[in-house]
């Protein structure tokens, strides 16, 4: 009996230690970046033009927004349509569906540097887009495609079958049912997935260095090279010249990405709390 108690206490101590380790790391990483970064924030960092004197992150921030929008324009419709096919149209056990699932699973496991290299070989070189906003966005859109497909499909599947039956019963076709009945109920889940994809785009570096390049300027057109905030952060950290600005930029990047992810979690929570009536 005594031995058992000691053993139990030991195991519990182990579990608590492991958890404390995780919490300490979380607080450590986030806390350190914020504490070091926020005091270094200055107006100079948000100047419209980048120069070696102000090391402004503003152009990179604008580029990040452009890159996100452009990637989503490509990936969101494709991902949502693909998910509609998988959830609403495809028959079970269909060979094609199997292939689609295997490939999208494969896509989600491919590391971002491989996407970057593929983007360089295909979009930048073979298609002749050069290192550009467009080449970067196309590369990222393939990268986030499986994420949007998966989250959208989950959202569609969560819509009760009775909704569809009701719609069919009233004489609506499949297409009308999907867009007028199923999609509206699934919007929060789809949105959460798209926001998650946005977080992924904003945080991405390796896939962009050789596809969008590192020019610290807002592009004039789609074929101009750009650097996003993450790539900007990487340049600052690896140059090692602007430590203070690197701290501040890291804090800004962290807050943006964490904010985006928190928004996604919040939306998912809200649907989880709401039951289909």
């Amino acid at each position: 009996m005594m031995m058992q108690k000691i053993e139990a206490a030991g195991v519990r101590a182990l579990v608590y230690t492991g958890t404390l380790f995780t919490v300490a790391i979380l607080l450590g990483v986030v806390g350190y970046i914020l504490i070091k970064g926020i005091p270094n924030l200055s107006l100079n960092l948000f100047a419209w033009e980048y120069s070696t004197e102000n090391v402004s992150l503003m152009p990179a921030l604008i580029n990040t927004i452009l890159m996100t929008l452009l990637s989503l324009i490509f990936a969101a419709p494709l991902g949502i349509f693909a998910a509609i096919y998988l959830a609403e149209y495809a028959k079970r056990g269909n060979k094609l569906v199997k292939l689609i699932r295997i490939t999208s699973e494969t896509l989600s496991g491919i590391p971002s540097i491989i996407y970057g290299l593929f983007g360089l070989l295909f979009f930048v070189t073979a298609l002749g887009l050069g290192m550009s906003l467009l080449a970067g966005a196309l590369t990222l859109s393939i990268m986030i495609l499986p994420l949007i497909m998966r989250t959208t499909e989950e959202a569609l599947i969560a819509v009760p079958i009775e909704y569809r039956e009701g719609s069919f019963g009233l004489g609506a076709g499949r297409l009308r049912t999907v867009f007028k009945v199923v999609m509206p109920s699934a919007i929060p889940g789809i949105l959460a997935g798209i926001i998650l994809a946005t977080g992924r785009i904003v945080g991405e570096t390796a896939a962009l260095i050789y596809t969008a390049g590192t020019v610290a300027k807002v592009p004039d057109n789609l074929l101009d090279s750009t650097r996003t905030l993450s790539v900007h952060m990487y340049s600052l950290a690896s140059e090692g010249l602007y430590t203070d600005q690197a701290y501040a930029t890291a804090a800004v990047l962290l807050v943006i990405v964490v904010g985006i992810n928190a928004l996604s979690v919040y939306i998912v929570k809200r649907i989880a709390g709401r039951s289909y009536g």
Partner: peptide, 22 residues
């Protein structure tokens, strides 16, 4: 804790790299 862990997952790899570096 659950959202906190999700937050850890969302931190960009350059930020991790920077943290490692400093």
């Amino acid at each position: 804790l659950q959202p906190a862990v999700a937050l850890l997952a969302g931190i960009p790899s350059v930020v991790y790299g920077f943290f490692g570096l400093i």
